[in-house]
C-alpha cells in the first residue's frame, strides 16, 4: 500500500476566560499519541478565533474545553460561525463541567458529545474516530 490515509485533524481550543488547561492539554496529547494531527490554540480564544483557526487548519473535529460555566454563551456562537463558514461537517465535542440540561441544549445546537470530568481518553479518542465525517478509511 503506497497511498497514505489522511490523518484525522483536530483543533483543541480553550475559549472564554478560564485558564484551567490541564484537561485540554492532556486530551490534545492523547489524540496526538493516538495518531491524529492536533492543533492546540492556547488560552482565551474567542469563537471567531476558533472558527477561523478551524477553517485555516482544515480540521475534521474541534474539541472545546470549558470549565467556567460559560458554555451557553460560547458554544452556540462557535456553531453559528462554523455554519456560516460552511463547516457543517466538522465534528464538535465539548469537554468540561456542563450541567445535564445545558448538555441537551448543546446537543440541539449540533454538538456531537459532551465529555464530563472523569471521561476516559480512550472513550474520547474512540468517539472522535467513529464520528468524524466523512469517516476516513481505516488505517
Amino acid at each position: 500500500m503506497t497511498e497514505t490515509v489522511r490523518k484525522i485533524r483536530v483543533l483543541v481550543a480553550k475559549p472564554g476566560l478560564d485558564g484551567h488547561d490541564r484537561g485540554a492539554k492532556v486530551v490534545a496529547r492523547a489524540l496526538r499519541d493516538a495518531g491524529m494531527e492536533v492543533v492546540y490554540t492556547g488560552l482565551r480564544q474567542t469563537p471567531e478565533m476558533i472558527a477561523s483557526a478551524a477553517l485555516q487548519e482544515d480540521v475534521d473535529c474541534i474539541g472545546l474545553s470549558i470549565l467556567s460555566g460559560a458554555h451557553n454563551a460560547i458554544v452556540p456562537r462557535v456553531m453559528e460561525l462554523l455554519r456560516a463558514a460552511g463547516m457543517n461537517d466538522v465534528l464538535v465535542v465539548v469537554g468540561g463541567i456542563v450541567p445535564s440540561e445545558d448538555a441537551e441544549m448543546l446537543s440541539r445546537e449540533g454538538v456531537g458529545a459532551v465529555f464530563p470530568p472523569g471521561s476516559s481518553l480512550e472513550a474520547i479518542t474512540a468517539y472522535i474516530r467513529s464520528h468524524v465525517r466523512p469517516a476516513p478509511a481505516a488505517p
Partner: peptide, 9 residues
C-alpha cells in the same frame, strides 16, 4: 443525548 462517557465495563 448520547452519553459517550460511561466507562467501558
Amino acid at each position: 443525548m448520547k452519553s459517550p462517557t460511561a466507562p467501558a465495563d
